[in-house]
């Protein structure tokens, strides 16, 4: 069991690293799906059978589809150049956080159950934690509203505006104000960061 877990963990982490390193977004999404699949297997081997299946279908399946869909809409753009935070600093910060947490959690591994105890998800979900589920319904609903709000096309005649580049966009904004302001203030407006 330990060896299997070790392999799964290494595979999942490697997939995660690859997802970040990948040049193309599509690859990144696929590596994420891979990581998700390995994590689902870890779940299964730890006894969390039901959520393993959920994770496999939602995490590795649905989410990947969503990513692919979004990438196809937004375009698979390759971004050149250095990241904002120097890589060395990023490695250091992330590494220190990991070390700190490991150091704190090092003793927490003591209780070792003899056998993985699978227990019913349904009881926990629908009876013991029903309040969570109710709150979750509100969450999902607001999520749907949010999605609709973010993606819905404008009803009015602004449709032409939606495909402008940022520079044109800000010019339009200025133009909208031009009717109301003096040229002097307009120059200031344009100079604003």
């Amino acid at each position: 069991m330990v060896e299997l877990l070790l392999i799964l963990v290494i595979a999942a982490v490697a997939c995660a690293i690859q997802a970040i390193r990948a040049e193309r977004l599509l690859n990144s999404a696929l590596w994420l799906a891979g990581a998700s699949a390995f994590i689902a297997m870890i779940f299964y081997s730890m006894g969390a059978r039901e959520v393993a299946i959920i994770e496999l279908s939602v995490g590795a399946g649905l989410v990947t589809v969503l990513f692919v869909f979004a990438i196809s809409v937004a375009g698979d753009e390759s971004i050149e150049g250095r990241p904002a935070v120097p890589r060395a600093l990023a490695v250091m910060l992330a590494g220190l956080c990991v070390i700190g947490l490991i150091w704190l959690l090092r003793d927490l591994t003591a209780p070792t159950p003899t056998a993985a105890s699978a227990s019913a998800l349904t009881n926990a979900l629908w009876h013991e934690r029903a309040l969570d589920v109710l709150a979750q319904v509100a969450l999902i609903f607001t999520g749907v509203i949010g999605l609709l709000g973010l993606l819905a096309e404008p009803r009015s005649a602004h449709a032409a505006e939606t495909h402008t580049t940022p520079v044109e966009g800000s010019q339009q904004k200025i133009a909208a104000r031009a009717t109301t302001e003096s040229p002097l203030e307009l120059q200031k407006e344009a100079a604003r960061p």
Partner: peptide, 28 residues
């Protein structure tokens, strides 16, 4: 009054506010 329940409410609050913050989705 339950840690995980607290998180669910918290996350629901966050999700509902994302769209509200970016409500003017035509503005960069």
């Amino acid at each position: 009054n339950d840690l995980f329940n607290l998180w669910v409410w918290f996350e629901a609050m966050a999700v509902s506010s994302y769209m509200l913050v970016a409500f003017y989705r035509d503005q960069p």
